[in-house]
Design a protein around this nucleic acid. Sequence first.
DNA 1: CGGAAGCTTGAATATGCTCAACACGGGTGG
DNA 2: CCACCCGTGTTGAGCATATTCAAGCTTCCG
Lengths: 249, 249
Amino acid sequence: MNKNEGKLALASEHKDVHKRELPIICCSCEARQRGMCGVLDEDELIELARHSRQVVCRAGEQLISDSETIESYASVTRGVVKLSKVLEDGRQQVVGLQFSPDFLGRLFGRQSAINADAASEVELCRMPKSVVERMVAQNPALEGRLLEQTLRELDEAREWMVTLGRKTAKEKVASFLYLIATHKDPAHDDRSVVFDLPLTRADIADFLGLTIETVSRQFTRLRTNGVIEIENHRHVLVADLRRLKNSCG
Amino acid sequence: MNKNEGKLALASEHKDVHKRELPIICCSCEARQRGMCGVLDEDELIELARHSRQVVCRAGEQLISDSETIESYASVTRGVVKLSKVLEDGRQQVVGLQFSPDFLGRLFGRQSAINADAASEVELCRMPKSVVERMVAQNPALEGRLLEQTLRELDEAREWMVTLGRKTAKEKVASFLYLIATHKDPAHDDRSVVFDLPLTRADIADFLGLTIETVSRQFTRLRTNGVIEIENHRHVLVADLRRLKNSCG
DNA sequence: CGGAAGCTTGAATATGCTCAACACGGGTGG
DNA sequence: CCACCCGTGTTGAGCATATTCAAGCTTCCG
């Protein structure tokens, strides 16, 4: 930690500080480019950063649990976050995946209605609820950007409802692979893609409303059909993305 | 139509009009109470009303179709709107229901990604896209209210994903009935509720990711179990809402 | 009254689930 | 170093749930 920063932070409580420096961490942060921080001016960014904390979470770690009181929000800066809901008897459904630089947390919520877990190793930038909400109230551009993300998430959720409600097991698995493939490589006019699955078979099953056995069988089926190749159970090669898309129903 | 209004509208193009009267239709409109219009000041409301048109749609009428260019938004002021998506081979999934005073239309969207149909007879207040977007840009409170509705819709969509992915046919049908029952009668600490189904069996099936036959069978099952009573295929009586809730899984 | 649309019911079928066995890989400890 | 174990994934056999196909029944409306 920087000595000057420590001094300033102590001396400046409740005072405006001019010309504080932009935190180094923010400079290369995706949230600054395409995420919520992209609409903040320098002062706001410094103010927000002053209250934020970078945290790294191991795969499988729980980030937010259902019914938990919400005290902070976060930006996802690395890795994949899994949003899920569980029924009383333990049945689980993954209701969304979040990637960098998505905003994490139910804005204006008092307590969470979902669980959030690190699907892979994840890096978060945690921000206190109150600071974010104050900033949202003062900066319509921030409100606007969060509105846009929320609208995008709603579009994705509805798209996925079609998959859950109306597709066969094979189509579901193909749809999942297509989702990951296009998310990893935005320049997918190229026909072939290679990637590592960010989810276990169990997570994929919970995402697709299937069992792990069915997911496994459909992977095998897509493999024997030549649509995909798999190495080490995790590493996937899609030779022709259009063929995969055609398998999505 | 009022003669004075006609004259004013013609004479005042591109001029500010002071002291225009609040449209009568707005006074009793639910959107003015709990919907988007609740955050508008009088001038804004008059301005918006000047560009808006009330329309009534018969049950089954298409309001917005997939891939259609978006030129207007709307507030639902009466009835139930069904949002759906279809796969190329015709399989259909209902991805949401909207009631008064919900906002209808994909904000900032260039073209629609879903169909919207009148499930029952529906009344809409149509507003031009450009006017709404200008007002959203100028009034953060409006942006905030639309953000809140979008967040609520996202919550609902995710809740429904659990139903689609992880519940049995019986639980799905019970969940649908519970959704309608609690939506019709917000004061549902009372144990019994009576209502008319706003959707046909086909629509319900598309909402639940089932076939009409399965929906029908589960209705029969809930009826013989004494959870519900049905009259005329449409009129439903729930004697004990807690029993229905227990059937939701 | 007759026809159409919407709904229910039954029998046969198929899709995905359950239960069970086994394979593979990485880490731990004798 | 090898044996063992645990977590993860695959495969098979039998089964259950929801679908399909087909018939018949209400209700609404001309």
